[in-house]
Amino acid sequence: KKVTINGVEIKFNNPEEAVKFALELAKRLNLRIEFHGDQIKIE
């Protein structure tokens, strides 16, 4: 399963991993996060 985070394609074994990764990243950098299907936007 491929997920695009800020235009960067990252391959994950499952979608939950991708979501956890994105949330952790957003929390660490104190950023806002948006989900659009397989696209995750962090700003």
Rank of each mutant, 00 (worst) to 15 (best):
P15K: 09
L29C: 15
E9L: 13
N30C: 15
N13P: 10
V19W: 14
F21D: 01
R32C: 15
K1Y: 15
A22P: 00
K1I: 15
F21L: 10
N6F: 15
K20D: 06
V3H: 03
F21T: 04
A22T: 04
I42R: 01
A22S: 01
V8Q: 05
K2G: 05
E24P: 00
K1Q: 10
E16M: 11
P15S: 13
I5W: 10
G37F: 08
F21S: 05
E24G: 05
H36Q: 10
G7V: 11
H36A: 10
A18G: 04
V3A: 03
P15I: 14
R28N: 06
E24K: 05
A18N: 03
E24F: 06
N30A: 06
N6D: 06
N13T: 11
Q39L: 13
L23F: 07
K41G: 02
E9D: 07
I40W: 02
F21I: 12
I42S: 01
N14E: 01
F12P: 00
E34T: 12
E34I: 14
A22V: 13
F21Q: 05
F21V: 06
K2I: 15
E9P: 06
I42N: 04
F35H: 03
I40Y: 01
P15Q: 09
V19N: 03
N13H: 07
I5D: 02
F12L: 03
E43L: 14
V8E: 03
K41M: 12
N6V: 13
E9W: 10
L31F: 04
E34Q: 08
I42F: 06
V3T: 04
N30S: 05
E17Y: 11
G7H: 04
K1C: 15
I10A: 01
I42E: 00
K41S: 08
E24H: 03
E43R: 11
K11C: 15
V19K: 07
D38W: 10
K27G: 08
G7L: 11
E17F: 08
F12G: 01
Q39N: 13
G7C: 14
L29T: 03
A22W: 14
L29S: 02
L23I: 11
L29I: 05
Q39H: 13
A26D: 00
A26Y: 07
R32F: 09
A22D: 00
N30F: 10
E17K: 06
Q39Y: 14
L25I: 10
F35L: 06
K27L: 10
E24T: 05
E34W: 06
E34D: 04
E9V: 14
Q39T: 15
L31H: 01
K11A: 11
R28L: 11
N14S: 13
K41V: 14
G7N: 05
K27M: 10
G7I: 14
P15R: 13
K1R: 12
K27C: 14
I40V: 06
N30Q: 09
P15W: 15
E34Y: 09
G7A: 05
R28A: 08
I33A: 01
L31R: 00
A26F: 10
E43Y: 15
